[in-house]
Simulated assay, not measured.
Amino acid sequence: MTPPNVKPWVRSDELDRCPVPPKDREWVERWMTWCVKEFGPEAVKRETALPSSDLFPADFAGTPVQVEELVGRVCMVMGVDPGDVRVRYFDSADEAPHALRSGSRRHRTVGRYHKVDGHAVIELDLREAGQPAVLTAIIAHELGHVRLLGEDRVQGLDVDHERLTDLVTVFLGMGFFTANAAYTFTKSVQRFSALPLGDLTERMLTGTALDPTHHLGYLTERQFGYALACYCLLRGETDPPWSRRLEPGARAALQQGLRYLHRRPPANRD
């Protein structure tokens, strides 16, 4: 019988393969293992964050009070002390004229992280305040910087920090939002330029490139999907009900990744 949500003409041997290339598979598995050692095995077993009134209300309008409450809730999911985080806002529309004058490719920053007087500061684009699910993904990414940069966990590591930040959002329970945001931005906007470390752009959420030779390596939908499969394996989940609410690309990679992982010998699976 063909598994649910799988096209009947897809060969079963294709379904048994890992949904990402070997290099990506090794990277995801290596750094998910690092996350277990770094944050502890209990961290991955917290409740997976999903769109609900507990996270943001149905009438969410992106007011400063609502946004700061949302930041506080995401902090609790990701193990960040909300009292140590300061929230600031900017409007990316104000940055567009400078980009045009300089002749650079268009980009739009949607989030930033830095530290001021010992406190983590995350800056959020006001233009995303009306999209709570996307805003949640941006907040999660910036709080990933807090867990990595703010807690001095990556100093001396030979790792693409932005990719690891995306992976940490998965490990710490926010992968549903960051995976879906990758799909959202892939569908809506392309061609963005790179910004310094700690800034989050739409292209960083998608992993898309300016051209085939310029790729910064942030997680794609399929990489997010396989990371979510590893996350589910760590949690002992074989068919998480929330997977049906993922966007198609990440959902397919998650399902294929779970099938692949559970068909591996136990020693390799661990």
Rank of each mutant, 00 (worst) to 15 (best):
168 V>Y: 03
227 A>P: 05
172 L>K: 11
236 G>C: 09
184 T>R: 13
186 T>C: 07
5 N>S: 14
221 E>F: 01
50 L>E: 06
124 L>P: 10
174 M>W: 05
1 M>K: 13
16 D>T: 11
143 L>S: 04
206 T>F: 01
269 R>Y: 11
232 C>T: 07
30 R>L: 10
200 L>P: 00
55 L>Y: 03
96 A>I: 14
134 V>L: 04
34 W>F: 12
216 L>G: 14
102 S>K: 06
204 M>Q: 07
166 D>N: 15
55 L>T: 10
225 G>F: 01
27 W>L: 09
23 K>L: 09
111 G>Q: 01
8 P>L: 10
20 V>Q: 03
76 M>Y: 03
96 A>N: 03
183 Y>E: 14
239 D>G: 15
10 V>A: 09
125 D>C: 12
122 I>N: 08
95 E>G: 02
112 R>G: 02
194 A>I: 08
138 I>C: 00
128 E>V: 01
198 G>W: 00
218 Y>C: 15
230 C>G: 03
149 L>A: 15
33 T>N: 14
152 D>T: 11
148 L>Y: 02
3 P>I: 03
117 D>Y: 09
158 D>Q: 13
154 V>P: 03
267 A>E: 15
210 L>W: 00
67 V>I: 13
186 T>R: 09
63 T>I: 01
138 I>K: 00
161 H>L: 15
103 G>M: 00
167 L>P: 09
119 H>T: 10
137 A>V: 02
36 V>C: 09
24 D>L: 07
63 T>V: 02
146 V>K: 04
162 E>Q: 13
114 H>W: 10
126 L>R: 11
17 R>W: 07
123 E>R: 13
69 E>T: 13
134 V>W: 00
102 S>C: 01
143 L>K: 00
84 D>N: 10
95 E>N: 03
43 A>E: 12
145 H>E: 08
156 G>C: 06
164 L>C: 07
